[in-house]
Design a protein around this nucleic acid. Structure first.
Lengths: 357, 357
DNA sequence: CTGTTAGCGCCTTCAC
DNA sequence: GTGAAGGCGCTAACAG
């Protein structure tokens, strides 16, 4: 038993499909009150649900917003997703989710899939990559996006523009001041800490990571400090843990684990909170304590991690708001014209994890 | 400039739309190798992307899986969502996301929206409510689901069946042994702790919460212990915090904050990890320490919270797997017939937060 | 204000 | 193996 159709409703109400359509779905023309009631009643009694696919086909617009993230279980993306979801609801649209693990090739697939579904707009939340190995895929992604935009699609990218994308119409970038904020973090940390800094970064070429690293180094330089050493690992907790293990060994120096660490004390900057937590876990596992044996700071101010102790120094980012703004930027009404890019602001938040011992 | 259509591709390749369709999308009939290549090339050069809406209309199936959660930023749901996403990818489907805040009325809307989009299946991940105030909405939700199933839709619910839903075909429940596991947790805790127990639960009528409470009390009873007092608050961190504050006051008793708490020491069971973390934060804010001044346990074993210290005793649930299984249960191939319900198993995981002082 | 007529883009029997 | 025709359910122009 298939779902009932508009035609059936119309027949039952004794009117034409067109009229039924007019009353059931908003139209400029308003059918007579009496007939409208009859139609509504018929629809109701049949449990009529309009076929969005057919509507979309006819109107060539689907009421769908495509969201691309690396991993929906990562709290960073989950927070953004919440914002997107909210904004989507405001627009009475639904969100289609795609997770790509950050691979440009997958992202391209996702864009194509969204295009196939005639999504009204696409929000890309993952960090961009500029690695040479991704060059080709990036180009394809850019091409796919351009085509999507040319066909009237609207896209918003969080963070960096897609490398090589050239579309002008309907292409928005929600800029996140990663570099400035990382610089500000470095400045504040440098004011309280006189020793060495070490950066735990993501793979080279991950733009978000690179920006934060670069900004941090800049901040250090401005404070008259030597550049920090950079450890690279994967952009997640495991990566942070791995790097943390290396640093722990160094901090412990020749010490056998009892008594004071023999190596240098340091201030660690992990380019995101999740990595910072991983690093902290590694240090702890190695018997080191924070901030006594090492200070550590992250980036993002992930909500779920705020109860972590010692409280993590970090840079607060309005993740949910970012998701909302990105989504709104793709709304046909607002965010049109080349209005100024959305002014995302963050805030350096120093907490216990970097308190001078 | 609209996206190019199958007809255009066919024309460019000098074949009929039917043929083009056959080569571009799998069909029983295989067109000649030469003509196939020509079509593919034409499609390629036009950047052809099939219109999923039209395909869906014609085939009356959309390749969409609807996912309903309370809040995608809640790590519990985020983890399930990841599993759903994975399984969806296996099925070459995309997931449509709806967040409802747990309100049955919103859930009903979401189901209707999914039905409108002709989603092939729906996964409902939120906890069910049996509160009288929700009765009416629940009934409507059940009706909507029934209709959806009757029209060939498949649904899987995590945890409890939707109250009042009667559909048989295509209606699956992924049962989570909340009660048993809570009982097992109580048993283990009772073995190590001789004092009082207190439960921080969600609002009465939230089935998941109620089950866990009930199971815990049962476990206590079997261990020959008195039933625990139950504090009710909202099913999230804030609720846990609020309850934690109350308990903190009690634990501190008349003490002025210096020296040992004057009140009773207790073992707190929060019905989920997020609430447990909230409660722990409250205790800490009140100057209490865990497990010295109070033991605390949660439920779910949320990944992001595993680095929390003192490590939280909890019940591990294979959240991602749950999402996967629920999704697979709705696949047309497997999970059909009244195969035995999926055997979700959890595990009591005692950690530092409940170590006897 | 209402009904009629065309499609939206694709798939799927059918003939050839 | 290939093409032609009809229809999926709905909306948007037109007539009336």
């Amino acid at each position: 038993m298939a779902a009932s159709t508009l035609t059936e409703v119309a027949r039952l109400a004794g009117v034409s499909p067109a009229t039924a359509s007019r009353v059931l779905n908003g139209s400029a023309r308003k059918p007579g009150k009496d007939i409208a009631d009859r139609v509504r009643q018929a629809a109701d009694s049949l449990g009529y649900i309009p076929n969005a696919q057919a509507q979309g086909l006819a109107k060539s617009s689907s009421g769908l917003i495509g969201l691309i993230v690396h991993d929906i279980a990562d709290p960073y993306f989950a927070a953004i997703a919440r914002g997107v979801q909210e904004a989507a609801r405001e627009q009475r649209k639904m969100v289609l989710l795609a997770t790509t693990g950050g691979a440009p090739a997958e992202e391209k697939e996702a864009v194509a899939a969204f295009a196939a579904r005639r999504a009204d707009s696409i929000v890309i939340a993952g960090s961009r990559s500029s690695r040479t190995e991704d060059q080709e895929d990036n180009a394809e992604l850019a091409a796919e996006l351009d085509r999507y935009c040319r066909n009237g699609g609207r896209v918003a990218v969080v963070g960096h523009p897609v490398v090589g994308a050239s579309a002008q119409d309907g292409y928005h970038v929600v800029a996140v001041p990663n570099q400035e904020l990382a610089g500000a973090l470095a400045a504040k940390l440098a004011a309280h800490w006189g020793g060495d800094f070490v950066i735990i970064g993501g793979p080279e070429g991950l733009l978000t990571s690179d920006d934060r690293i670069h900004g941090f180094q800049e901040g250090l330089a401005k404070a008259g400090r030597a550049p920090a050493e950079i450890l690279r690992s994967s952009f997640n907790r495991a990566g942070g843990y791995e790097a943390g293990l290396k640093l722990a060994a160094r901090i412990k120096g020749g010490s056998t684990g009892t008594g004071e660490p023999a190596g240098p004390k340091m201030c660690i900057f992990a380019v995101n909170d999740v990595m910072a937590i991983g690093a902290a876990a590694a240090l702890r596992a190695e018997g080191l304590r924070i901030p006594r044996d090492a200070a550590i700071a992250g980036f993002d101010d992930i909500e779920t991690l705020r109860d972590f102790r010692p409280a993590l120094s970090t840079v607060s980012l309005p993740l949910e708001e970012i998701g909302r703004l990105a989504t709104r930027a793709t709304a046909p009404l607002a965010g049109d014209g080349d209005s100024a890019p959305q002014p995302i602001t963050g805030e350096v938040t120093l907490r216990r994890s970097t308190e001078a011992a």
